[in-house]
Design a protein around this nucleic acid. Structure first.
Lengths: 370, 370
DNA sequence: TCCACTGGTAATACGATATGAGCAGCTCCC
DNA sequence: GGGAGCTGCTCATATCGTATTACCAGTGGA
């Protein structure tokens, strides 16, 4: 782990186009050109770079309001309003739906690493906890936060669709940590929950389970939607799909409600013998439910966790789950955020992490299976 | 067309390794390192680049005559000119027996808060993970660490007695986060585990339990010794002490060993009906053991956790434990460390935190108790 | 000797950049 | 008015640097 503020100069890692943009910006500020900037091909000559590089630089400048780009015309330099528009601070906002202290360990670790890296590059971080109250209240809080801190950009952690949309519509640079809603186009970085769940249900069915359930908190989070999709895909793809009972057990996140929902299914004619559980803490809720009901794991019920937790691999029986490397995740995240703030934006595409599969002892063939 | 000097700033187009080389060169010039540069892998962390990049940079520097590179040896800094011995850096060392990512959430949170506070006061922090191998290896690592970083002081997290002694003997300012060994006189800040365990055993006995056990990892950590003392005190103080069976179940921290130790006691004539379990993750190991054995909680076995965990209060049945306020702890810790480094020392006295008692649903009178 | 650390090397994947060719819109001169 | 010659736009492809992951080899302390 490195220090909070590094005594070293870090390599700045600016892309060539970002460097070019800076050079062009400076030339404009100094008034080296009148009215228009030179043509793309000319700029290539001047700055000794290739055309795609010049083009990305120009478009970055256009997004910053320095230029107007129109096909066929020369790129017009916009009259500069006296700097009033962008005296942004070197601050990154981190917006989370949950208080940091309640985050899963891996996420907390990631946020910490991110803050450290950003600090090394001279960026402060500001947290906003934005729990799901009224959408309008939420919007007001976010607007106030962004305005007040004059953030360069924001990291959005498991926030609602509305919040994601707000950032998309207002053009504030943002990176979604977690998945984007299908309707939102923002850059994001997340575990590929869909593949994970597809794989996990394949494991259960492959072991011979014929009644499986996905235990899922009923938030409208994008990652959870993806999990459900993956789960159903996995069931669909199984060769003997006609004999399979597959249910999605939604709960509101409290142990009480979860346990009453589990009751419904475990008292039914075809109680699940294979569970796929979303979120580490709900894994423990489920285990305690089984303990209370006198069900055993893995003999009566097999269990796979969608996420990771330090405990899963150290307890006995160990719990099948999908770990990924904290450190790699943190590095990718930090690099993306730096790019986001250095270049004022990122392509709106998902960056997926593929966790490993940890088989664990919590999965066995169901009773009476050959 | 060619002018000898472009009026524009050209993109400098330095490769990442060249930038890294420049950064390392500067660090050497400033005398930030003594004798050797850090290892390649460490430099990767510091400068946030990959190993091939670091290697290219180091070899470039070697060609410039800054370094001598020899396989198997650390890369020696060649004497260029006498640098005045620099005073100590504004660096605080944090020494932990476990990797940070494996820390309990509360501890991790505390460390993070500490680093933030120190950073605000202009102190960097450096971590040293010092797992329990040979005492002499440990000592060497610590000596190298302290010398290399020229720390102002250190925070010692759950380290062995030997390490604590080293700091006492060498007069390096240190604060023990956790308890001091009886033989060591250093300032410390810790939860009052002795009182907590005394109280917890009182709760169990008060509910009517007559066979109680303390489940304890068999490290020679001071905090765990204090727990045992408190546990035995609590038993001693109970009015009907003659009927009581009280055992201390020591385990080596692995789920396998823990479960075999539990087996011994749960198969005995007087199986424990009340458990006091040290460390959150062992609580879960114990619960899974009960699950495997078909024992129920709290009906057959009552359970109290000595420590705190986010999950304890949210699962069902909730688990009796001893929470304390993260934030308060972090504040007290930061203040102590600042005082330590500002004044070059602290009185060698323990600062105790008294957690609250969270009753929880995991404690009930034993079966057959009126 | 063994173990834990050091640097050395290689294979692979990926992304940023460079290059070139061809397309489409706008201007201006003929 | 029309076309030459600008402009910016798009695509495919080649190349290089970097990141990642292994595994190997030398050193030095227990």
């Amino acid at each position: 782990m490195s220090s909070s503020r590094s005594p070293f100069d870090l390599p700045h890692r600016l892309s060539l186009s970002a460097q070019t943009a800076a050079a062009i910006r400076k030339a404009i500020e100094q008034g080296l050109w009148e009215g228009h900037v030179p043509s793309e091909r000319r700029l290539c000559d001047v700055f000794k770079v290739s055309r795609p590089t010049v083009r990305t630089a120009l478009h970055a400048l256009a997004k910053e309001g320095w230029l107007e780009i129109r096909q066929g015309c020369r790129n017009r330099i916009l009259p500069r309003r006296k700097q009033a528009a962008t005296p942004r601070n070197r601050v990154i906002g981190v917006i989370s739906a949950e208080p940091v202290s309640q985050l899963a360990h891996a996420s907390f670790n990631g946020v910490t690493a991110l803050r450290t890296t950003l600090a090394d590059h001279g960026f402060a971080t500001e947290m906003l906890v934005c729990q799901a109250n009224r959408p309008s209240t939420q919007r007001r809080k976010i607007e106030a936060f962004v305005r007040e801190h004059r953030v360069h950009g924001c990291v959005l952690m498991s926030v609602s669709k509305e919040v994601q949309q707000w950032f998309m519509e207002h053009g504030v640079p943002a990176l979604v940590l977690g998945s984007c809603h299908p309707s939102v186009r923002l850059p994001s970085i997340d575990v590929d929950n869909q593949s994970v769940c597809r794989h996990a249900v394949g494991v259960l069915l492959g072991k011979g389970h014929r009644s499986v359930a996905l235990v899922l908190p009923d938030t409208q989070m994008a990652g959870d939607l993806a999990s459900e999709t993956g789960f159903l895909e996995g069931v669909q793809r199984h060769p003997q799909k006609e004999e399979i009972t597959a249910v999605v057990i939604r709960h509101d996140g409290t142990a009480l409600h979860l346990s009453s929902r589990l009751d419904v299914y475990f008292r039914s004619a075809t109680p699940p013998t294979g569970l796929l559980v979303v979120k580490p803490w709900h894994v423990f809720s489920v285990i305690l439910y089984l303990l209370k009901r006198g069900l055993t794991m893995p003999d009566t019920v097999s269990l796979i966790a969608r996420d990771q937790d330090q405990l899963f691999s150290t307890v006995l029986p160990s719990i099948a789950h999908y770990p990924f490397d904290d450190h790699t995740m943190a590095r990718r995240l930090s690099r993306l955020v730096l790019k986001l703030v250095n270049e004022g934006g990122l392509p709106a595409e998902p960056h997926l992490i593929f966790p490993r599969h940890f088989p664990g002892e919590s999965v066995k063939p169901p009773r009476g299976h050959a």
